[in-house]
Amino acid sequence: MEIKGKTALVTGAGMGIGALTCVELAKAGVHIIGVDVLKETMSDVQKQVESFGVKFYGYSCDLSREENIETFTKQIQYEGRSFQILINNAGIAPSGPFISQNFSVWKKAISINIEGVAKLTHSCLPHLSSQPEAHIVNLASIAGKFGSEGTVIYSATKHAVVGFSQALRMELYETKIGVSWICPSMAKTRMIDGVKPSAFTPVIEPIDVAKAILKAIRKNKGEVMVPASLRFSIVILPALFPRFALWLAVKTKASKGWLTANKGLEKNIPV
């Protein structure tokens, strides 16, 4: 896809990977429809995006609530906002021992990370199907390829994103809509605050994820690992030697940081 002049709808656009993705898209001449829980969190992103001579339209939407998504999609349709790229970036990562959190915390992760992605995609597909060409990008994680301690529900949600994306790409294979899913390691954003990394899960720069998203859209790539070298340790090794991979992950404390960080819901996430 030639992305210059296109418009992208980006969720979780207020900060982190979402904000950087908006800026990278703007540099490439892409207009932005930004979505976040609070519209005001996107004010800085809007200024950066518009400095590249493209347009930014900001909307607030709680993606954990189906009725909010329906209201939002009806609103942009009413306002005539056309777009060719959908980037499902918004997500939350509570962590800790599975039994330690009130289940409402885990349920919130499921509602945003899985239901929000599926519902928004479902609502946007009729519009994307009407475009000459379109692309959908879903932010998964290495946790979507290999479950680990401290991330039981987060891993479950990201496995769901991977499966959803793979099946959707197959279903849309003979159409003009491409589907990509991005599986990054721990990106240096506030999401990993208080989480101690390990050699098994290297910390990467969020700009690397943003650039991988743009490349996936341009080249219609399916699954993208960031960094690419993770494919051996996260995909190939567990497939060939599942018992050894599990032993290695436990012994190297690959995700112990998530277990001990015991993260709850972020302050800007309504219960």
Rank of each mutant, 00 (worst) to 15 (best):
I177K: 05
V161L: 06
N102W: 10
E174L: 09
P97M: 15
T252A: 06
D44Y: 12
I136A: 04
V137F: 14
S104W: 04
E79I: 12
G80R: 06
P132V: 01
I99R: 07
V105D: 05
P184T: 02
K145P: 01
I3Q: 07
V235S: 14
F146W: 11
V179T: 04
G5E: 12
I192S: 01
L265W: 04
G91V: 07
V137G: 09
I3K: 07
A19K: 13
M225V: 00
G222I: 02
V37M: 13
S198P: 01
K253W: 03
A93G: 14
V161N: 06
Y173F: 13
A140H: 04
W258D: 08
E70I: 15
E79D: 14
I32R: 02
A109H: 05
R231P: 00
L139T: 11
R243I: 12
K107S: 14
I76M: 10
S141V: 12
V195Q: 04
Q77M: 11
K27C: 00
E66Y: 10
K107Y: 11
F52E: 02
I136R: 01
L240Q: 09
N68W: 06
G147E: 05
T73E: 07
Y154E: 01
R218K: 15
P197E: 06
S255R: 01
N138D: 14
M170R: 11
G178W: 13
V179A: 14
R169G: 03
I69M: 08
L230V: 03
F146G: 02
L259E: 12
S148V: 08
I69Y: 08
P132M: 04
I136P: 10
A249C: 13
V10T: 09
V271M: 15
A134K: 05
R190L: 12
P126I: 10
A90N: 03
N113M: 05
F232W: 03
N138F: 00
Q131I: 03
V209S: 03
F83Y: 09
T151G: 13
I76R: 04
A134S: 11
G18Y: 00
E24H: 13
H31Q: 06
P126D: 00
I213F: 08
S255T: 09
I99T: 13
T201I: 10
R81N: 15
M186P: 06
F83T: 02
L230Y: 10
E79G: 05
K196W: 10
E174H: 15
C22F: 08
A118R: 07
P132W: 06
D193Q: 07
A199V: 15
Q77W: 11
I85K: 00
S123V: 12
D208P: 01
S155T: 06
L168S: 00
I76N: 01
K215S: 14
L139F: 01
H122M: 06
P197W: 00
E149A: 14
N88A: 07
N68K: 08
G222S: 10
E174W: 11
A118P: 04
N89E: 13
V235D: 09
I136N: 01
L168W: 09
L63T: 00
Y59T: 02
G12Q: 14
S111Y: 07
V35D: 05
R81A: 13
I87N: 08
K39V: 12
L172G: 09
I85N: 05
Q84D: 11
G12E: 02
G12R: 05
L120Q: 10
Q75E: 15
L246R: 15
L265K: 00
K196M: 12
Y154P: 04
W106Y: 01
L172H: 09
W258E: 08
